[in-house]
């Protein structure tokens, strides 16, 4: 199954009584941007460290490009770039020297790759600045630069947006999207912010308490978010009677307006509007409300708790 760039089979890690990761099965194809979502302590970093051979699974296996992940399989890392948690660089070395170290450790002959990656991450003006003097955001950029220096086919990134300002977040998002779309780079990116990750990921996996509780395409995920039609008229009580008479389900909200959760109302709000207008109660406000992504994330986690 070389078709999958990342594949895990029952990947499990236990620390004594703590089940950090439990039977996680992943299959990620080339060019995908896979958002790995979970709260702090959900098992994201442990999974990533197992994918990178830093932690041995208690049970199960991980494969990258069809090859089993093992610390001895060093050739594998020529094709993989990574960033694990907060990137730490050698504080007494400059940005240039920190990157030069990794150019050499990755056995890259082309010296220009260092300048190229610095320019790409807007680090050129800091090239001679010691890493200890970098801002948090630039230290993060340096970590991302290290991950990209060898033009890897697979990027495994653990919360790369940490510490970046809004402009930096957009820049990294655009960079990653370009790498995936234009260069076919596969990206496995963890985050605890669904709103951010869903902007550019093609597929999302949600991990909670070590278990992969949901996996779907981003479009499908968005479709399964709760949507409701909110209607406000000059007489909401009467409007509710009219709607109920026509077969619509509605419930009053604290501000007196009505909430219609059914698909016919959501799909055709113009019909609801026309109905109420024909009865002399044209809506003063009618709006389709979509569930906030973060609420959706928490609802999935809550549902998982209730089911288990």
């Amino acid at each position: 199954m070389i078709g999958d760039v990342i594949r895990t089979e029952n990947l499990t890690k236990h620390y004594g009584e703590i089940h950090a990761v439990e039977t996680v099965n992943l299959q990620i194809k080339q060019g995908e941007i896979y958002g790995f979502l979970g709260l702090n302590g959900a098992g994201k970093t442990t999974t990533i460290r197992m994918l990178l051979g830093m932690i041995r699974p208690t049970r199960g296996e991980a494969f990258l490009y069809g090859e089993k992940v093992d610390p001895g399989n060093t050739d594998l890392w020529n094709r993989v770039g990574h960033l694990v948690e907060i990137p730490y660089s050698y504080p007494e070395l400059t940005v240039l020297e920190n990157l030069e170290i990794f150019r050499r450790l990755r056995l890259l002959k082309d010296r220009d790759v260092v300048t190229e990656v610095m320019d790409r991450l807007h680090l050129g003006r800091y090239r001679n600045m010691k890493a200890r003097n970098l801002s948090h955001g630039n230290a993060q950029r340096l970590g991302i630069a290290r991950a990209l220096i060898h033009h890897p086919g697979l990027l495994i990134l653990d919360e790369p947006a940490n510490g970046l300002d809004p402009a930096g977040i957009v820049q990294v998002r655009e960079l990653l999207t370009d790498l995936a779309r234009s260069h076919g780079v596969t990206i496995f990116i963890s985050s605890h912010i669904l709103g951010e990750i869903s902007r550019f990921a093609t597929r999302i996996g949600i991990i909670h308490e070590g278990k992969l509780i949901r996996e779907s395409e981003v479009g499908q995920l968005k479709r399964s978010m709760h949507r409701t039609l909110h209607v406000h008229t000059l007489n909401n009580q009467k409007a509710r009677e009219i709607l109920t008479h026509q077969g619509y389900t509605s419930s009053p909200l604290p501000d007196g307006s009505l909430e219609l959760p059914d698909e016919p109302a959501i799909s055709h709000p113009e019909k609801v509007s026309a109905l109420l207008a024909s009865k002399g109660l044209p809506p003063v406000k009618i709006a389709l409300d979509e569930e906030d992504l973060e609420h959706f994330f928490f609802r999935i986690i809550k549902n998982h708790h209730e089911q288990s």
Binding site: G72, Y88, L105, R106, L107
Partner: peptide, 9 residues
């Protein structure tokens, strides 16, 4: 952690 997953053993 940055010295572990590299082509250098």
């Amino acid at each position: 952690k940055d010295l572990l997953s590299l082509p250098v053993p």
